[in-house]
């Protein structure tokens, strides 16, 4: 039996019957028969904590795809998740909640400007690779990804949803980018009515277009529509808007950049885009 280390705040605690939706080397996504928590993931420690995931140490199990198949039945009883076909047992009852950010009350434009600079530099530096043209700004990175963005976010935020499903990967770049935008809008939702308005306009569109992307990406997008974001994304946005400490930004950036193949960088691009459009123009 394994003990789950952390649990997201949207994880089920009630018994459920479920099925494996998809499985990766270090992650298992599960659909449940609970209406309130229809989705739950088991993620390796190295993967970012999300509101709907339990993090576990899968070290001893090797590649999970060799062990678990999509469609395998899953049962949770008394906080213990069992995958009988894989003889996998995870006790979630001792898992700790990961810390969430506090609501942001004040915006300091000078501070945000500075932090934006740090993050943009971090993103550019990250994109240095052999034989690759130099990427100097978030804008260039967005162009490089081939995403379409409106000239003015406030006037046509719906445009962004054209990117849903666009790009490579399990969570297409366009979706990751959109997540970043939504994360910033959500963080200032209460104190900045314009952000709330833009968020709602995007949300309306996203809802209708969830079918255009992968199930997993759609899951994270729909969480975002309810203003739930993964731990690293939530905290990066929070720090960009509040912290004085450069190294805090650097650590938060590194955490995000290490997510997926390019997902982290794509989300950061969305965050930086939204900060420019919303808070710095």
């Amino acid at each position: 039996m394994m003990i789950a280390l952390t649990k997201g705040y949207l994880c089920p605690s009630q018994p459920f019957n479920g099925k494996v939706h998809s499985v990766f080397r270090r992650a298992i996504n599960i659909t449940t028969d609970l209406t309130s928590e229809p989705w739950v993931s088991l993620l390796g420690q190295a993967l970012p904590a999300t509101p709907t995931a339990f993090q576990c140490d899968f070290g001893a199990h090797g590649d999970l795809t060799a062990l678990v198949k999509a469609g395998d039945v899953v049962f949770m009883r008394g906080g213990v998740i069992r995958l009988p076909a894989a003889a996998l047992v995870v006790n979630t009852s001792a898992a700790k909640d990961w810390p969430q950010t506090e609501p942001i009350m004040l915006l300091n434009q000078a501070l945000i400007q500075r932090n934006f600079g740090l993050a943009e530099a971090g993103l550019s530096q990250h994109c240095v690779a052999p034989q690759q043209q130099r990427i100097r700004s978030a804008h260039e990175y967005i162009q490089h990804l081939g995403l379409t963005t409106p000239m003015c976010l406030a006037s046509a935020p719906e445009w962004l949803t054209n990117n849903i499903g666009y790009g490579k990967g399990l969570t297409p770049s366009g979706d990751d980018f959109l997540l970043g935008v939504l994360a910033v809008l959500s963080s200032v939702y209460e104190i900045y009515p314009k952000a709330a308005d833009i968020f709602q306009r995007i949300a309306l569109q996203v809802q209708q277009q969830l079918g255009k992307t992968t199930d997993i990406s759609a899951h994270y997008l729909s969480l975002a529509l309810s203003r739930h974001f993964s731990q690293p994304v939530q905290w990066l946005v929070y720090y960009l808007l509040t912290t004085q400490d450069e190294s805090t930004i650097a650590i938060a950036m590194a955490k995000n950049l290490s997510i997926g193949a390019s997902s982290g960088a794509d989300t950061i691009a969305g965050i930086l885009y939204c900060i420019t459009q919303l808070l710095l123009s």
Binding site: H126, C127, V128, A129, P130, Q131, Q132, H144, K168, G169, L257, S258, A261, S262, A265
Partner: peptide
């Protein structure tokens, strides 16, 4: 190192293959 690894992935993603 982790960074080298990421760079590798990124290179791959950008279709600038370097193995």
């Amino acid at each position: 190192s982790c960074t080298a690894l990421l760079n590798y992935y990124l290179a791959n993603k950008l279709k600038l293959t370097g193995i």
